[in-house]
């Protein structure tokens, strides 16, 4: 063993070089983005004024708030249900051990596209195509749900044991019988888990799609921002955080009960 290797806590020059490169990048990028200290300090002054105007939150227009929150909730429920419904066949078709490759590859591509496009971008396109309102929000979040659930579902199906499948086939089961009795029982619990997670994230996202006109509380929030109604903005933000916190608590409970 050489003397250098025996040193406890030998300096790691590669890591140091990496950190130096990262620091250089930060300097370069801040210059590129025109992030100067003067600008930040002005910003912090503005932040103080903004915060002062946000307090106290103004719940006087609670009816508008409740209406928006309910619509967000509806968008979340509907898009999750539609997403689950569409993900079931898509996930099965994308699993390479169930579907032939000439089906699985294009379906995988479709799922990848669904997942890669941010739901707000999809929402914009649907607003243009379907008009303003909750329908566009439902459609956009359905696409996002499909991307997430179908991908994970396909991966879960690819990990199943093929023995029950062979047994069902050997016993003369048709495609549908094989799927129902040999494939789905093996992935049902994981599928429920993905769906629950997606419901959670759809709830978060449904509070937002309104910013581009796709229904829900986001529209109210954006309008309040544009009118400088900062005390109403803070009321809406508090309501959203409370709803999401509640949903997280509830889904945590359900997940614990399922185990």
């Amino acid at each position: 063993m050489s003397a250098a290797a025996r040193r406890a806590f030998a300096p790691n020059w590669a890591a140091r070089a990496g950190f130096a490169a990262l620091a250089l990048y930060v300097v370069y990028a801040t210059a590129q983005l025109d992030l100067t200290w003067a600008r930040l300090s002005i910003g912090f002054g503005e932040a103080g004024r903004l915060f002062a105007r946000m307090l106290p939150p103004n719940f006087a227009r609670w009816e508008l708030l409740a209406e928006g929150m309910l619509e967000s909730l509806q968008i979340a429920v509907l898009s999750t249900a539609l997403g689950i419904l569409l993900s079931l066949p898509l996930g099965l078709l994308a699993a390479r051990n169930i579907a032939p490759w000439f089906v699985a590859v294009p379906v995988r591509g479709f799922i990848a596209v669904c997942r890669s496009l941010h739901y707000v971008i999809v929402a914009i396109l649907f607003v243009k195509a379907l008009g303003f309102g909750a329908l566009a929000g439902v459609a956009a979040l359905t696409v996002a749900s499909m991307g997430f659930i179908a991908k994970l579902f396909a991966e879960a199906v690819e990990e199943i044991s093929m023995k029950p499948v062979e047994a069902a086939r050997a016993a003369g089961g048709g495609t549908l019988a094989v799927l129902i009795h040999a494939v789905l029982p093996q992935v049902a619990s994981r599928f429920t888990g993905f769906c629950l997670y997606q419901l959670d994230s759809n709830l978060r996202n449904s509070t937002l799609v309104g910013i581009v006109g796709a229904g829900g509380i986001g529209g109210t929030l954006f309008a309040a921002f544009k009118r400088f109604d900062y005390d109403f903005v803070s009321a809406i933000l508090i309501a959203i955080i409370a709803l999401i916190f509640l949903a997280e608590l509830l889904s945590g409970r359900i997940r614990a009960a399922m185990r």
Binding site: D34, G43, V120, I211, I240
Partner: peptide
Amino acid sequence: VSSRSVNSLVWALIFVAVFGPGPAAGT
């Protein structure tokens, strides 16, 4: 928890009000 509950677009709205439009708010 509060950082996670507020969506990045909402954070962006707040920071656009603070720093003005531009990549500073986005960052």
